[in-house]
Amino acid sequence: MKKLLNDPANLVAESLRGVERAHPELRVDHDQRIIYRADAPVTGKVGLLSGGGSGHEPAHAGFIGPGMLDAVCAGEVFTSPVPDQMAEATKKVDGGAGVLHLVWNYTGDVMNFDMAAELAAAETDTAVEAVVINDDVAVEDSLFTAGRRGTGAAVPVEKIVGAAAEQGRSLTELADLARRVNDNSRSMGMALTSCTVPAKGSPTFDLPENEMEIGIGIHGEPGRRRVPIATAREIAEMLVEPLLADRDFTGGDGVLLFVNGMGATPMLELHLMYAEVAALLDKAGVVPVRSLVGPYVTSLDMAGCSVTLARLDDDLLRLWDAPVATLALRWGM
């Protein structure tokens, strides 16, 4: 393992020191590992809280700021944060209009956010709602599994709900909106390499030079199947076909086409993938009206990509275009 490290056990804590020094518009509670807007709580605005394991940077802290999230809780690498953190963060972002938990669908995250909501209900009278993001079509038979994972759809969900929260929409409206964006989004990912969890020190799985994993999540876990390496054009087909089979993206509304890097894949390759995916969408009658290309939801140093499609009606399109000022997404301000 070759990494920029002092001690793997201190990686998250020491990285948060850097977040604090580099970005004065953010505050860091180092004891509880909460990153939050310097102006939190925003009076009268619903507080938006997310979070999860570390190792997905710029998710989750990169999505904090005006027009997106108010706070996130950082867990250990690939490990959900704990209820105390979430309950404390809920208090920090409560501007009197309630707090919405945007939970990426992983067993640990869902359980910990559940316990946090129980704690918050016992200790405060803050209204808390939770919406679970689950967009990953690689998980088949979702009735017999932990369900579809929350992956790339978190970006449009958190961006769009963030914009609506700035407009003063209510907790209930925002929860409905989050569910609507989630329902309108699908993702599929692939890996060219595994990744190395620093505490383990070696790659999570062995992937020979001539093979790749299709249907991966964002935790270095193997995917649904292992296949021989293929061209980018063939890989694009393997990713797009299940997305279009799972949901109809044709018709009047356009889509956000989000090509996400898994951490170690260069932008040069990601834009090549964007062109391949867009060409397939053209053939299928799906119209990309907005695009996002880059590493936003990563899996440490994994090479590979995921494709997310999110159908945007006029309301969702306006909210996507609304101003946002975070480390990862920044426009209109």
Binding site: G53, G75, E76, T79, S80, P81, V82, P83, D84, Y106, T107, G108, M111, N112, D114, M115
Partner: peptide
């Protein structure tokens, strides 16, 4: 354990 473990194992 709930405070320090995280993941699914902490709550469980």
């Amino acid at each position: 354990l709930v405070r320090s473990v995280g993941g699914a194992s902490g709550p469980l």
